[in-house]
Design a protein around this nucleic acid. Sequence first.
DNA 1: ACATAAGTAGACCGACTTGTCTACGCTGCA
DNA 2: TGCAGCGTAGACAAGTCGGTCTACTTATGT
Lengths: 193, 193
Amino acid sequence: MDKRTHIINTALNTFYQKGIHSVGINEILKLANVAKKTLYNHFVSKEELVCACLELRDQRFNEWLRNQIADCTTPQQVASALFSAIASWIDNKAPELGDFNGCFFINTAAEFPQSDHPIAMLCKAHKESVLQLLFDKLSHTEQLKGQLEKTIQLAQLLMTLKEGMICQARVTHSSNTLLQDPVLLRQLIASSL
Amino acid sequence: MDKRTHIINTALNTFYQKGIHSVGINEILKLANVAKKTLYNHFVSKEELVCACLELRDQRFNEWLRNQIADCTTPQQVASALFSAIASWIDNKAPELGDFNGCFFINTAAEFPQSDHPIAMLCKAHKESVLQLLFDKLSHTEQLKGQLEKTIQLAQLLMTLKEGMICQARVTHSSNTLLQDPVLLRQLIASSL
DNA sequence: ACATAAGTAGACCGACTTGTCTACGCTGCA
DNA sequence: TGCAGCGTAGACAAGTCGGTCTACTTATGT
């Protein structure tokens, strides 16, 4: 396999499970069975490696989410698919995303509080791209066609609920089945239509 | 002032703004104008100091939140007060909680991923105590008296929305006014009654 | 066949980390 | 008066970090 992508894969897994500051370059080298020179041949610094990990994660997560909501044609279906997808991820039934350890971007942003830091900016960019993804999907439904304002509102609401689910699960180490209740879901959607 | 609490105050402010791993003991010593021996006279290690910070923060945050929802007598009022309180915190209008930098407990938990670590357990405990606080308040309202199951559900939902608001604001550096819309709020509550 | 590139193993550097220890100053109490 | 006890200032130990560098090996392409 390509050395570069192999390094990024190993680093992403390790960073996601243990955080950035807690993982040294040497640990990644051992896990990847790669010499230090090889790593610094592909990346000028640890920071650049972290950025590559964030980009890969962004790509993978968005693709996964896009697939999860691919077949939805109504806002209700989008919301239902979204929340059950997140729930299955929390329950470690989404192997593409690795063992659940919260949102990699929120975790990483917590370690780099300066908002102008390149790493923090990538975390922000990810959240914007996910919001865009939800917005696009919702805006193609019959119920929301042409209703820009309401579509934005609903996408925002879904994002907030998604983040809440993930963060709660991360800290409490248990998944919240609340948002899979179809009755509650219908009410939630109704409030934005 | 008592040296010990002065150290904890300084440490809490600094850790909250910059994260735990990014802040060395020496930085705290300088900011607090305190000798190293004094610090290690009160705390056996950095970890113990971090724990003291978490406990102080838990105390302050819960007291603040309790005050914010003190006068509420209906679930709608609780939800409304909760979300506008969080929004004002995000907009740096809650001086008791310091300059907004997300949830200290979620940020800290992200830096200590091992769930059995004392620090991670304090973070989890905080979330449970906040949930309990909301549950207690809701269970004293006329509308939810005796309805244990529905009360738990609504408290959970409010928690999820609260976490979502905070995490989103942390990463995107902007507050989301969506949850202050009374219409949406009424629908939300209605789904749990 | 041989040059060039890319790999390995790991010593090494300087900066930084937590935590200990020495030497000394101030204050309050018997 | 004298002696604990708590404080300051900061050197120091022991270890980790990111990153560089040397010396050597392997693979590839003309």
